[in-house]
Nucleic acid binder design. Structure first.
Lengths: 331, 331
DNA sequence: GACAGTCGTGGGAGCGCTCCCATAGATTGG
DNA sequence: CCAATCTATGGGAGCGCTCCCACGACTGTC
């Protein structure tokens, strides 16, 4: 906890001016080899680390970005989707000198997150898992450059977004069910307050409509395993689907377990398709047929786009990453 | 992204001085009701949010703390242990105006974490999951007040730590196995580079020694499910234990699945005891008998102790939280 | 009525940086 | 050989706050 050295002290030790030290630290414009060397050894000797607050006050940037997830910690930590997103972001940030700030909370009690972002806590933000109820998120988007993971609810001009084509991915999954002869096809959606859920539902419906089928049933979960099991229970109480398209692997796993518990065989009695292709898809028996979305790449791309904006470049506003149907045992 | 109002502008709008605005913002010493009111409306009108960098430069504190986890993201997100710790910390921070900074990384490539902490990025740090190989962690402890989750490897005078009594918890778990008539008892430990693993192993050994038994086998995992399965495979290849004490629920689950896959019944053929009592313990069939450690409370306490230190108080240096054996179906 | 103690307030002096302009010296060319 | 150009460097002026001291206007006391 030694008292820190300041730039001025380094300058004195190296026999140069503050400015020269600053140039060395920031690797900027030309500095003579002798000065360079003198400064570098002074830095090493004094164990100098530039003060973050002073630097960001003067330069008006923090070299930190936030990942905002309007979910409670349980959901956040329980879903491998977020783990991959974070891993992707971390990967993209690795090369840069930016730092990631994880801001996880529903509703932002006390406006801590909002004011942290607004009062210059970060240079920009990544926002995923956006619900209609999260008004605070919009205020954040007013304050700093934002990149959305998934289309924002209220799209404004010049929003940057990284997404997959949820509707056609869901279509593809549903089509697979149709192609394999299923006719009583139900879906377990995510919360209708999220655009991704709505889009997937719409893809589901349109695939059925094109095939001249009616949805057997539509029921909502919250992307968690428990909600998937609960949804399956409701489905079964109301009738006997021969296939279920679940909007997440976690919900698919919940449904699968509920079906097994009720003595139904998967895929013989009921086929199940999930969404994500996370580790979860491999953990079930049978393993899940699912829609793969490139979660790691999504995180990586989001961070890349934000960094590019912060660097003053003009990355593409919308990036749509590809999805793919992965056929395994469950359908 | 409106240009921000400064304290000076608020002062002008309210017809008072900078100082008075600062007093209002910091809720400090007496301000006349009229001034108070004038300032408050000026703040509301101008949408004023104090600048974080300026504030922390002047006051020499950031109002942020870090949680340092020297693990890769996969391990971090995969283990409910961390989820509970984070939830506990978040809970404790909720009332305060401190912010949590999650710093997850093995080895700290590029020293980003270390220098972030050292250059005044946070006022203090919480460190969990400390391995012998993580030298950078010590450098962090030199730079800011730290509270350890689990005893640090190199204990120095006046370290603050929140922990459970791992040795006696492991003893208790092992004793349960002995009491239920098991004699060929093996253990799956965590990495020997972590003190908690070593302590649990030691508790395991001493319970057996007291009962006049020899350990059937000791093999190490890394607390992950896969490593537990792998360890169980090794155990089976070498003989036939009739009980296994695993140092985490995740490893216990891995082991349990491996045993089932090999056609062994739990608990009839092999009894299993886990450690943590996370959600995982309830997800297996049979459910896990396990040592409950109060993970949420550990996070909460760690944060509480750190906050108390930062507030200039003198919290107890060592807090040992209680553990408890939870008997379910697996042993 | 003069003196000490309050209370609310203002403003100077930094906090440790970056940014920009000025300057001294070295180099070039007509 | 002197003006024009370039390179390396120094230092002033902030960035937006907090902290501390000082000041005027009141109160109360002997």
């Amino acid at each position: 906890m030694a008292s820190r050295a300041t730039i001025e002290e380094v300058a004195a030790a190296a026999g140069v001016s503050r400015s020269t030290v600053s140039r060395v630290v920031n690797g900027s414009t030309a500095v003579s080899p002798e000065a360079l060397h003198a400064v570098q050894s002074a830095i090493a000797e004094l164990n100098y680390v530039p003060n973050r607050a002073a630097r960001s006050l003067a330069s008006r940037q923090t070299h930190a970005i936030a990942l905002i997830v309007p979910e409670d910690t349980t959901r956040f930590f329980g879903d491998p989707f977020f783990a991959s997103i974070v891993a992707g972001i971390t990967g993209a940030l690795g090369g840069s000198d930016y730092l990631l700030n994880l801001l996880i909370a529903t509703g932002d009690p006390g406006d801590k997150m909002t004011s942290f972002v607004r009062n210059g806590g970060v240079d920009g933000a990544l926002i995923v898992s956006h619900h209609t109820s999260d008004a605070f998120v919009e205020r954040i988007a007013d304050a700093v450059p934002v990149v959305w993971g998934g289309r924002p609810l209220h799209q404004r001009p010049s929003e940057y977004v990284v997404d997959v084509d949820n509707a056609s991915a869901a279509r593809m999954a549903t089509q697979h069910l149709i192609d394999t002869g299923r006719t009583r096809i139900a879906t377990i959606t995510g919360p209708r307050t999220m655009l991704a859920s709505v889009d997937r539902l719409q893809g589901f419906r349109s695939a059925l409509a094109d095939a001249g089928l009616e949805p057997f049933a539509e029921t909502a979960g919250d992307y968690s395993e428990a909600s998937g099991a609960e949804a399956a229970r409701r489905l079964l109480a109301a009738g006997r689907p021969d296939a279920i398209f679940a909007a997440s692997d976690l919900m698919a796993r919940g449904a699968l377990r509920m079906l097994s518990a009720k003595g139904l065989r998967v895929p013989d009695d009921v086929a199940i398709v999930g969404f994500d292709d996370s580790q979860v898809a491999l953990s079930t028996d049978p393993q899940l047929t699912t829609v793969r979305q490139p979660m790691y790449a999504m995180g990586e791309t989001m961070a890349g786009v934000l960094l590019s904006r912060l660097a003053g470049n003009e990355p593409p506003e919308v990036t749509i990453l590809p999805t793919e149907l992965v056929v395994r045992g469950s359908a």
